[in-house]
């Protein structure tokens, strides 16, 4: 089992529904977020290109945040999901600094928080909140170990990229381009 998320940038409109759905699903306090939208514009008028995409923790195989955590609060569970045990986290912030995706933040209650791929929903056979709500259906989620899964098929048949590949983290959020 290896969970992955695949996001189709050709369909994403950057509406931020994934952001607010995550906030209400996971009780993320106002002013913070576990996922977010980026917008990149290139070219010059009228030959312009725009890429919108939803970003979050990349649930890396080689996760710097897990390596640098002094207490073991940051850890990887089955399926490759990177999690933080809140009551083991001392809030030192080393993981925040180490993450090339800027995916972690300090929760007002003192621990470090981030995307869990909605681990609690996966257990019930549900998709992560962001994926389940996206109006453009540009987000896909599934098991990369299964060659027939939607995510495996998409990565087989479409052009894609990952973020900050140079960091060598082996991220598991993929962007169709």
């Amino acid at each position: 089992m290896r969970y992955a998320m695949v996001i189709d940038t050709l369909k994403c409109v950057g509406c931020s529904d994934c952001v607010v759905a995550c906030q209400t699903e996971n009780n993320v306090p106002h002013g913070y977020c576990r996922d977010w939208i980026t917008e990149s514009v290139s070219g010059s008028y009228p030959n312009v290109e725009l890429e919108l995409k939803s970003e979050r923790c990349n649930h890396c195989d080689n996760a710097p945040c897990v390596r640098c955590c002094p207490t073991g609060a940051s850890h990887i569970v089955e399926g490759g999901v990177v999690l933080v045990t809140a009551n083991e986290c001392i809030g030192c912030g080393a993981c925040i600094e180490s993450c090339p995706y800027d995916a972690r933040y300090q929760h007002p209650d003192g621990y470090v928080d981030k995307c869990t791929f909605c681990h609690h929903r996966l257990e019930k056979g549900q998709l992560p909140a962001c994926v389940s709500v996206c109006p453009t259906k540009c987000m896909y989620f599934g098991d990369l170990d299964n060659p027939n899964s939607e995510v495996s098929q998409l990565l087989k048949n479409r052009k894609y990229k990952t973020l900050a590949p140079e960091a060598g983290t082996n991220p598991h959020v993929f962007y169709l381009i």
């Binding site: 996971n26 306090p29 106002h30 939208i37 514009v41 970003e55 609690h120 019930k124």
Partner: peptide, 25 residues
């Protein structure tokens, strides 16, 4: 132009306490 995540996060004094909310153990 790229919107950075740092810009999005605004420091807020409104901590809401608990984190996960689901309906099963």
């Amino acid at each position: 132009m790229t919107t950075s995540r740092r810009k999005f996060i605004k420091i807020s004094a409104l901590g809401l306490g608990g984190l996960a909310t689901t309906s099963s153990a």
